[in-house]
């Protein structure tokens, strides 16, 4: 086999390998999604976020409108500070919108569900959702049930 043909094949092989890495990074791990959508950040404090993780979806009426960007503990209020990143095209969400943490399915991942409010003013970058509802923690629910039973 001629040197030229060998070089062409090796070039194709290396290109295919690099394409494999690119597919893994962009399509499988969703790196493309991060830079794809411009968005704005909204903060919300929760008493308990349960098993919510970063990159979890944020949805409104079941439609995905953004994702959880960052989760940290507020050292003063001891509440969970959740930064949501809402896609720019959903820029007309009322300021009195409430946020709650739900579970998709029985064993599925947890996500943040937004419930639209009635105000005309809309949320912008850096705003805060004040009405929040914590995740339902199964153990706590069972605990409450047991203490009621004892009464």
């Amino acid at each position: 086999m001629s040197q030229r043909l060998v070089e062409i094949w090796v070039g194709l092989f290396v290109a295919l390998g690099l394409a494999g890495f690119l597919v893994l990074a962009l399509q499988v791990s969703g790196l493309a999604e991060i830079r794809q959508q411009p968005g704005y950040q909204v903060a919300a404090s929760f008493d308990n976020i349960g098993g919510l993780r970063e990159r979890a979806p944020v949805s409104m009426a079941g439609v995905r409108v953004g994702k959880v960007e960052r989760i940290e503990l507020n050292p003063e209020s001891h509440q969970a500070e959740v930064i949501l990143r809402i896609d720019q095209r959903y820029d007309r969400i009322p300021v009195d919108t409430s946020a709650a943490i739900y579970t998709s399915g029985l064993l599925g991942e947890q996500y943040v569900g937004l419930e639209a409010g009635w105000e005309d003013e809309t949320l912008g970058s850096g705003d805060r959702i004040t009405q929040t509802q914590s995740a339902v923690v199964l153990e706590r629910l069972i605990g409450q049930f047991l203490t009621r039973m004892q009464d």
């Binding site: 890495f21 499988v28 969703g30 990159r55």
Partner: peptide, 19 residues
């Protein structure tokens, strides 16, 4: 299929360690 995958797989943990 794709969105659950993209939520779970990360470049720095999974793909880099696999590489």
């Amino acid at each position: 299929y794709w969105s659950n995958m993209q939520n779970a797989v990360t470049v720095q943990d999974d793909i880099l360690n696999g590489a």
